[in-house]
Design a protein around this nucleic acid. Structure first.
Lengths: 328, 328
DNA sequence: TTGAAAGCGCTAACAG
DNA sequence: CTGTTAGCGCTTTCAA
């Protein structure tokens, strides 16, 4: 039957006021007598009036929508991040376009361009890399970066170095004197920070057994597999929980007992870290807070607060579980 | 510096044609000489023109955006679903508003209403329950339902009954003669189907040890915990992988060996099913295909194909892993 | 094949 | 306090 959608004009006519007054009433702008406002609101309600946000956007230049750009939704880091961002945005009347770039920088550019076309008011962005050249395509659109460090933008991060240090010191304190490090991709800064700090602490105690690199994956590279097989370490710090899971799996296959023969500490505290066997000792990031701060910072920018591009760093903490018990 | 955004008018002026011709050129509509079209396109390119989708939406009534509504993003089922939907939509020039309703039907209504206000062209919806009363608020907006069964809408589902049956028969064939069922919330139809089919098959062999219910969670209710402690079954079928993970954890705590003393089969094949210890034998759903079909069906509706509201059911299969090996 | 012009539904000066 | 009116940037008749 496609009952034609009620427009503001219908409301105005039906309420016997001008279009402007109707608009004022709906938006609580302008100055209107309480009576008129109430009356218009009542009529609107009765008619089942709903704003046409697209039309408003055309007029005001603001869509009330923001974009959220991530490299990969199946990254277990993502869902809680997305949830917090979407909720926080909604509380403030914003809707969120979520996009996945499949870890491809070309797609990333394309996606951001599309978001710009769509007229989003701003973007929360989890970039693939720290190096980027999107200032050009984003123009002066407010953008907040999460996790990575991109020049020229406000960056919301966790204290990765602190995390690496925490993990290393914990292992050291547990009596380990041959500790390996299995990093994630070292071309991302947050990974360099977490592993750099860990390695430094371990070196200071001259307990570094080896240091190898792996993708953000449970799939292990040959290097990493050999390192584990070498049994050169009694404990490893992994740059991400995904890697830690892969390591535990491989160790089991080799008959290396965790944590007795090999203690494992991860990074991120992804949701299933606690359901691994043994449950994964890891570094927890305050994901919710980071997400909320990202949205808040973005909204502040939208409101014209011209604060300089800060770098906000959240503290992290170590969650003790079974894969690396406190005392060896 | 806020370089003012280039409008179509700018392009038209700069190209020395009318606004209409510029529009025709950009949209490949109307009839325009190849020369003119090419020229306009070139000028647009040079000027860095980008369409203002919001303005176009105001005029055409179509925003090129769709909504994706889910009860809970942290449901491990979600990310791959979302990924496929977002990608598929993007391939077709659509952007996706993703929203989480926190498992609350009031919020669900609210969210859909908001999406309608935003003028989305359609919605892909993973409802909280099968019973709903949103026809009223959605009007005649095209909506495709995923997983649940809501009257009046096209529903994309997996063959849950087949899955339950597959699991039960597998366990039976493996020689189990006391099989328990730990269902998820039975007020959702897809759960009734999977567990109903399983129970029926098990009963046919008169091997049902018990049948209890749990939330969609790794957290186990008292009932369920007791059932496991009773050791009345040598195998269980769980209505969801999340529950299966909880069961395996609890069994371990009780010193019940999996799979030797208790074989476990889950449902959904969530990403970490294969990283559990032991790796979880489970029923796999073709999530990507379901997502793609949902988007395709939605786009078809947008293009006015008035096919009746079908119920599309995808086949499922059993993935053999370690928690329930083939031979007992 | 092209251009002039009328809006989409809404907001925001500006008058009264 | 309220109404008139001029657009936002774009699409789309309708004439030329």
């Amino acid at each position: 039957m496609a009952r034609k959608r009620i427009t503001l004009k219908d409301v105005a006519k039906s309420a016997g006021v001008s279009l402007a007054s109707a608009s004022y009433a709906i938006n609580k702008t302008g100055s209107l007598s309480e009576d008129t406002r109430a009356h218009v609101l009542k009529v609107a309600e009765e008619l089942g009036y709903r704003q046409n946000l697209a039309a408003r956007a055309a007029r005001t230049g603001r869509t009330g929508a923001i974009g959220f750009v991530v490299p990969d939704m199946t990254n277990p880091f993502f869902p809680s991040l997305a949830q917090s961002i979407v909720q926080r945005a909604r509380q403030n009347g914003y809707s969120v376009f979520v996009t996945d770039t499949e870890g491809d920088q070309a797609q990333e550019e394309e996606v951001i361009r599309q978001l710009v076309d769509r007229g989003v008011d701003g973007i929360v962005w989890f970039p693939i890399k720290d190096e980027n050249s999107i200032e050009s395509i984003a123009g002066d659109l407010p953008i907040i970066v999460i996790d990575r460090t991109v020049n020229g933008f406000e960056c919301i991060q966790a204290d990765y170095a602190q995390g690496g240090q925490l993990a290393a010191n914990y292992l050291l304190a547990s009596g380990h004197d041959r500790i390996g490090v299995i990093a994630g991709p070292m071309d991302v800064r947050s990974m360099r920070e977490r592993c750099g700090a860990a390695i430094e602490a371990i070196n200071r105690a001259s307990a570094l057994a080896y240091s190898v690199e792996n993708a953000f994956s449970t799939e292990l590279s040959g290097d990493v597999a050999s390192a584990i097989e070498s049994r050169a370490a009694t404990a490893v710090f992994c740059g991400s929980d995904l890697i830690a899971v892969g390591v535990m799996g491989h160790a089991r296959k080799l008959g290396i007992a965790i944590p007795d023969e090999l203690a494992v500490v991860g990074f991120d505290d992804i949701p299933w870290a606690e359901y691994c066997t043994p449950a994964l000792t890891t570094i927890e990031l305050p994901v919710d807070e980071m997400a909320s701060e990202a949205v808040d910072a973005l909204l502040r920018k939208l409101d014209g607060e011209n604060e300089s591009n800060r770098r906000v760093v959240f503290g992290v903490c170590l969650i003790e579980r079974e894969s690396a018990p406190p005392r060896k």
